[in-house]
């Protein structure tokens, strides 16, 4: 395997969890809900995914467990913010705090155990083509799932009636309600979708990226995914580009270190966070770019008049 090929493969692995979490959050935010609990849902997906895979010795069951954990956490958030009308910012924060704590507790028994790695799909002939084979056809199912979900989300949001309803609910929930759409139910659905995607992102971390359980292994990826949604100005295609750019930044540090460049390891480790800040500055400074697609109702609770 050539060095260039290896670089591309690692960029794909580093980008996939970011893409999964970000596309889920994008759909949630399109419906007018800001869920700051991505990090908490992701880490719960990671720990539950690992635990289920280790116990059952099946990586696919682990993926399913991660998905369920993410959805479960997001429904907690949905119940509080949609039914009890709590503050979305505060509730999202508490979801992250709870997820980090709960995952530590669940994961304690699994620390240091050998993980189950999600196997790559082996497509006859295609996977064997030199260079193109490994890069295009040599990945595990979640890599393809992340791309399919992104394409599917773009299709649903821009080409279907459901997408129009979601956008309407996020753009003006009072009008959507007046038109007869059940704002709360649409938002429940979008929140659960976001949770499922974050759960898959977590499962990817503990089953494919580094197949083991390490406490706090999401290390801020959930927050970076949130920033990616802002960076993408709520467009799925840009989320894809952004996730791969950030994935590249994430692993750049490893390669620079391997080349023996005398830069402190900590500086390289802090690059993804610094780049996130810079990206937020650039994109937020451009008012026309952000204003167009920002869901107007984002973060506002909706109380139907009864």
């Amino acid at each position: 395997m050539g060095a260039f090929e290896a670089v591309i493969l690692t960029i794909i692995t580093a980008s996939t969890p970011l893409l999964l979490a970000a596309i889920g959050e994008l759909v949630t935010e399109r419906s007018g809900v800001l869920n700051l609990g991505v990090e908490g849902m992701m880490i719960m997906g990671a720990v539950c995914g690992f635990a289920a895979a280790y116990t059952s010795q099946s990586a696919m069951l682990g993926v399913a467990a991660g998905l369920i954990a993410g959805v479960g956490m997001s429904l907690l958030f949905a119940f509080l913010t949609q039914t009890l009308m709590t503050s979305q910012v505060a509730t999202g924060l508490s979801l992250t705090l709870l997820g980090l704590g709960l995952s530590g507790l669940i994961g304690e028994a699994f620390t240091g155990l050998p993980g189950i790695k999600l196997a790559a799909l082996d497509i006859p002939f295609l996977s064997d083509i030199p260079f193109i084979g490994p890069i295009l056809f040599g990945h595990d199912i979640l890599v393809y799932a992340s791309l399919a979900i992104t394409a599917g989300a773009a299709y649903v949001l821009f080409r279907t009636r459901l997408g129009l309803i979601i956008t309407a609910v996020g753009g003006n929930h009072h009008s959507a309600h007046a038109l007869g759409y059940n704002v709360i139910r649409v938002r429940y659905g979008c929140i659960a979708f976001g949770g499922g995607c974050s759960g898959l992102a977590g499962a990817y971390l503990s089953l494919a990226y580094t197949p083991q359980w390490i406490e706090n292994m999401s290390s801020g990826r959930g927050w970076i995914a949130l920033a990616l949604v802002v960076f993408s100005t709520w467009l799925p295609g840009r989320v894809l580009i952004g996730a791969y750019l950030f994935g590249a930044v994430w692993i750049m540090g490893l390669y620079v270190q391997a080349l023996g460049v005398a830069i402190p390891a900590q500086l390289l480790s802090s690059l993804p966070y610094l780049v996130t800040i810079v990206a937020l500055i650039i994109i937020s400074g451009n008012k026309t770019l952000t204003k167009v697609n920002t869901p107007a109702c984002i973060g506002q609770p909706f109380a139907p008049e009864r």
Binding site: L76, L80, M85, T86, S87, T91, L98, L100, G101, E108
Partner: peptide, 19 residues
């Protein structure tokens, strides 16, 4: 880690009860 779980739960319940 139970400490962190309790802390997270507590915030959740405060927000819910504040309704």
């Amino acid at each position: 880690k139970t400490a962190q779980v309790f802390q997270g739960m507590l915030l959740f319940f405060i927000l819910a009860c504040d309704t």
